[in-house]
Design a protein around this nucleic acid. Structure first.
Length: 256
DNA sequence: ATGACCGCTCTAAGCGGA
C-alpha cells in the first residue's frame, strides 16, 4: 500500500500538480491538507477522472483536509472534525477507513508566535489529537502537516528558530505523547540519521538553498511500522510550475 | 540584509502561512 500526505496550499491552485502526483505514483491513499476550497468547489469530477474518490472536510478559504482513495479500494466511515478540539469552526482533521486501515488527515494550527492566542490553540488541538489517538482502533495512520519539527535535526538552522514555534518543548512534548500512544514516525524510523525536509519558505530561494523544515509527518501505529518498506519525500513537486511550499511524503507498506 | 513568496479575497501595499 502506497500512502501519500501533502500540504498542497490550495487544491484549486495545485490541481494540476495533484493530478501529476496521482499519475506518477498511483498511490492507494492520498491525504491532503490546506485544500483552501469550499465544499461545493471540491474537484470531485477531476479526481474521479483520475481514478480517485475523496472524503473531505472543507472550510472555505482557509484550512481544509481530505482523504483520497484509488478506485477499487473501499473508502468508508468518514468523520469530519477532531473531538475535543475547542475550535470547531476550522477544517483541520478528517478521518476515513481505507482497506481496513483508519486514516486521519491533519492540519495542525501553525501557532504563529509564542505570545499569540494561536499558540495555546495549537497546543489544545494537539492535546485533542493525543486523546483521539489513544482511543482509536488499530491499524491507525495519522498523517499531515503537523507543524512541529520533531528534533533539531529536522530544522535547517535550529538557532534561527530558538524562541519560535514548531520547536518548543510544549509542542515536542505533545508529539512525544502521540508516539507514546503507540505511533511511529515513519520517516525517522526508516531514515534514522538523514536530514530531509518537507517544507521550504517560498521566499529568499530557501528551497534551492536547502533551508527547510521536516514538519509533515506520517505517524503509523506500531503494527504497521513492521510493514514499512520505504519512506521518501518527492522534492520534484517542490520544483517546476506553481509548486506548493510543501513536498509530498510517500510511505510504502508491504502487504499484511 | 531584520530584504526576496504565494494564495486567499469585502482586490487592501489587507491577511495567513511557518
Amino acid at each position: 500500500m502506497l500512502i501519500v500526505t501533502w500540504n498542497v496550499n490550495s487544491l484549486r491552485a495545485r490541481l494540476p500538480r495533484v493530478l501529476q502526483l496521482l499519475e506518477r505514483h498511483r498511490p492507494d491513499v492520498v491525504c491532503l491538507q490546506e485544500t483552501k476550497v469550499a465544499a461545493e468547489q471540491f474537484p470531485v469530477a477531476e479526481l474521479a477522472a483520475a481514478g480517485y474518490r475523496a472524503e473531505h472536510h472543507s472550510g472555505g478559504r482557509w484550512q481544509g483536509v481530505a482523504i483520497l482513495a484509488r478506485d477499487g479500494l473501499a473508502l468508508a466511515d468518514a468523520v469530519c472534525g477532531l473531538p475535543g478540539d475547542p475550535v470547531d469552526s476550522e477544517a483541520r482533521w478528517c478521518e476515513a477507513s481505507v482497506a481496513g486501515v483508519r486514516f486521519a488527515s491533519a492540519y495542525v494550527p501553525n501557532g504563529r508566535s509564542l505570545d499569540s492566542p494561536e499558540f495555546p490553540r495549537k497546543l489544545a488541538f494537539l492535546d485533542a489529537a493525543v486523546q483521539r489517538v489513544r482511543a482509536a482502533a488499530r491499524p491507525f495512520v495519522l498523517v499531515g502537516d503537523i507543524n512541529i519539527a520533531p528534533a533539531d535535526a529536522d530544522v535547517y538552522d535550529p538557532a534561527a528558530f530558538a524562541g519560535g514555534t514548531h520547536v518548543t518543548v510544549d509542542e515536542r512534548m505533545r508529539l512525544g505523547q502521540l508516539l507514546e500512544a503507540g505511533l511511529v514516525d515513519a520517516y525517522r524510523h526508516v531514515h534514522p540519521d538523514e536530514q530531509q525536509f518537507t517544507w521550504w519558505d517560498y521566499r529568499a530561494g530557501n528551497f534551492h538553498k536547502g533551508l527547510g523544515l521536516r514538519i509533515d509527518l506520517a505517524l503509523v501505529s506500531s503494527d504497521l511500522a513492521e510493514r514499512l518498506v520505504a519512506v521518501g519525500i518527492d522534492r520534484d513537486f517542490r520544483k517546476g510550475p506553481k509548486p506548493s511550499d510543501h513536498a509530498p511524503l510517500l510511505v510504502r507498506l508491504s502487504s499484511p
